[in-house]
Design a binder for these strands. Structure first.
Lengths: 339, 339
DNA sequence: ATGAAAGCGCTAACAT
DNA sequence: ATGTTAGCGCTTTCAT
């Protein structure tokens, strides 16, 4: 393990100059920079992040906190963030809050606060006021993705508008009885999106002069399984069967498609189905959906943090950003067939 | 940010004693330990990981390298590892090698070597000899999960045996024409499992005195989509249609189930299908499979690293471990129907 | 543009 | 069992 001193010796300069040359902070002549780079290269020198962090107070490391890893949305945001950070020379330290409150507590008490990170990205996590204020007190920039955190800059699609768009699509096709598979309320206190996605649905119905029928709502857990079961119940009833279903996530929508098939119903002839997300599998299932772009969300979160961490290098921070979303019509939605 | 000095002052001891009391290294009387703990608690003191790492040479941080994040196997291993590490007070720094070689190169050149980690877990990644030797030179323990790395302790199920078990199950049911959906060879140089899973299939066939018919093999990319397309081709042919399909992953097997349905074939009456993994969705689809336990694999990888990092605290290292796997019979496999 | 030197906040000998 | 002290390997003033 070559140290900075050896590089300095080989390049014939002081360690201070090596540090400046390699980090880009402070001015170094073109000529010496070249010498230093060559020496570092030759020795295979890599800075010790610990020594560097200790001396500078910067860790070049971002903490990312997620509630789950094995869900498409989270892992995709994470991937986007990771790639953006890699470009800026940052590492990611991952905190997975799956599990009980004890785990969560320990993450905050002992891990995040260890000064191992320069900033934190919280994905779909509603942090408590206490957790937020601790981070603030440490002057760690914090940005949320996909879930509103009070007092924190958050990157999230307008869930109500998204829901209205999905529902509106069905209404525009002529559907009048539109079922909704939404989130379980008890589950996932961290999510507000289930209720927002329901609010948008209801407002779209009302705007179209349609009644909101509570019998047409089924809660589920955002999984394919959950969507399947909810859809079976919705579609099983011979009387009030909806001609269309709007599910609050693509995974649940896919479950609904499978349920319809198993009931012998044809999609979209007998029932139209739309989801939200544009999940990897949506295309395969021909699922109409409202796309959000989690990978881009991850990248944008990084960009926001970089602006806070390096104000000099960036244009002024835009405090609030409207995230894009987009209706994607595939083959799971169509005009309702004549009764 | 309270420092160790303030804690020492408050507790009325030296910083060395605080360090010992809090870390558990070195001996401290019960009484002073209590005092120190109280003082630290009162001040909200948390050690600076950088200062600690710099002084001790230990980072309490493990690097985890994965090729993808949004695949069930990887994220599940990662989750298992994360949870195990949390218990031991370790953080995870995540390196995602998705993307091109440049990214991979930069991960190794500049990230892993920054001395930010005490050890590395490589998931389903075949590291080059050069990459391995660099890690070795740095004396960083390295363990692989799910993919064989030459010269490195690897945790992996015996893929050949697993494949033989899956195929054997079909043979035992009486199937004679057994198709196989396996990995694309060009894709994923990092995986050897596709070929091992094919070798096991072929050897099971031969053991049973059955011919290996190359027409019954289709490559796919380990996704549901890929499995669907491969299965359509396998099942579409009216002549040589296999009575059973063994897919090298559950995701591909699920694709095969969907393909069978779309072709109007009933599973398992017209065709039996088995996969490998015991994916989250396997139960939902009634998929018979050979379960491996990725979460446990992640935990075990951590355990191995801990044994290397803290030999004193652990029983002697078992160098090689046979990982468990288990046939799970659900409703996608059955005796072939009479011709 | 470059160098000298004082820390960054801890840990680990070494003493006692 | 506890204190003293010398670093760990850098970055960053402050000079020049």
């Amino acid at each position: 393990m070559a140290g900075i001193e050896e590089v300095a010796k080989l390049a014939g300069v002081s360690t201070a100059t090596v540090s400046r040359a390699l980090s880009g902070n402070g001015s170094v002549s073109q000529a010496t920079k070249l010498k230093v780079d060559a020496a570092a290269e030759q020795l295979g020198y890599v800075v010790s992040s610990n020594a560097s962090s200790l001396a500078s107070g910067r860790t070049k490391n971002i903490g990312v906190v997620v509630p789950f890893l094995n869900r498409w949305f989270f892992s995709t945001v994470l991937e986007g963030a990771q790639q953006a950070l890699l470009r800026d020379g940052y590492d990611i330290t991952l905190y997975n809050l799956a599990g009980d409150g004890a785990e969560r507590h320990s993450v905050f008490e002992h891990f995040l606060l260890r000064q191992r990170v320069d900033a934190v990205i919280a994905i779909s996590l509603e942090l408590t006021a206490d957790e937020v204020s601790r981070l603030h007190r440490l002057k760690k920039p914090l940005v949320g993705v996909g879930g509103p955190i009070p007092g924190v800059r958050t990157l999230a699609v307008d869930d109500t508008a998204v829901a209205r768009l999905a529902t509106g699509h069905l209404i525009a096709l002529g559907h009048r009885r539109i079922g909704h598979i939404g989130g379980v309320l008890e589950l996932d206190v961290d999510f507000h999106l289930p209720s927002n996605r329901r609010v948008g649905y209801e407002s779209a119905l009302r705007d179209a002069g349609l009644d909101v029928d509570p019998a047409l709502f089924r809660p589920a857990d955002f999984t394919i399984q959950g969507g399947y079961q909810a859809a079976k119940q919705l579609l099983g009833s011979p009387y009030g069967r909806p001609s269309a279903i709007y599910a609050a996530s693509d995974e649940m929508a896919i479950g609904a498609i499978l349920a319809a098939k198993d009931l012998g119903l044809s999609v979209p002839r007998d029932v139209s189905i739309i989801g939200i997300d544009d999940h990897d599998l949506a295309e395969f299932f021909g699922l109409s959906t409202v796309a959000q772009f989690p990978r881009a969300q991850g990248e944008k979160a990084v960009q926001m943090l970089m602006e806070e961490l390096h104000p000099e290098r960036h244009d002024p921070v835009q405090s609030s950003i409207a995230l894009p979303f987009e209706l994607v019509v595939r083959s799971s939605t169509a005009t309702p067939s004549a009764e």
